[in-house]
């Protein structure tokens, strides 16, 4: 059964679904962001597993290391980019959370989004 052989990928996919579930269901916006980060981490894990090689070694050519046994360097290089992107998005989202909490005094997404929804036109007019 390929599924059990590819258990790394399966774990990554399950983690992805777990993160998406957190993003959809949780009402606290910090927890939503945690879910987002779980999703991101799962994808990073998936990529790194793609580069895995049975009995592989690090792709650093020191002391006559055999290139045929080295693991795939591309996913690692890509994921460095992915991590940076994830950090950037998280930083921006958190700074927005700071501002939202200051202005609304709540972290509950339902209350945040519902508040003043009908008056949006009026309140927009002032500024």
């Amino acid at each position: 059964m390929r599924l059990f052989h590819n258990y790394h990928y399966a774990a990554a996919m399950l983690l992805f679904c777990l993160g998406l579930h957190t993003v959809i269901v949780r009402r606290n916006i910090i927890k939503k962001l945690i879910g987002l980060n779980i999703m991101e981490t799962s994808v990073f894990f998936f990529y790194i597993s793609l580069g895995y090689l049975d009995g592989g070694i690090a792709p650093i050519r020191v002391g006559g290391a055999d290139p045929a046994r080295m693991v795939n360097p591309i996913p690692q290089a890509l994921i460095l980019t992915g991590i940076v992107v994830a950090v950037s998005v998280t930083a921006l989202a958190l700074s927005m959370v700071i501002l939202l909490y200051r202005q609304y005094g709540t972290l509950d997404v339902d209350r945040l989004m519902r508040e003043e929804e009908p008056e949006a036109v009026e309140s927009g007019k002032e500024d």
Binding site: I29, A93, M96, L100, Y104, L112, M113, E116, G124
Partner: peptide, 10 residues
Amino acid sequence: GNRNAVRAAF
């Protein structure tokens, strides 16, 4: 930076 804008962006 007003509250509706930040909420929409979020």
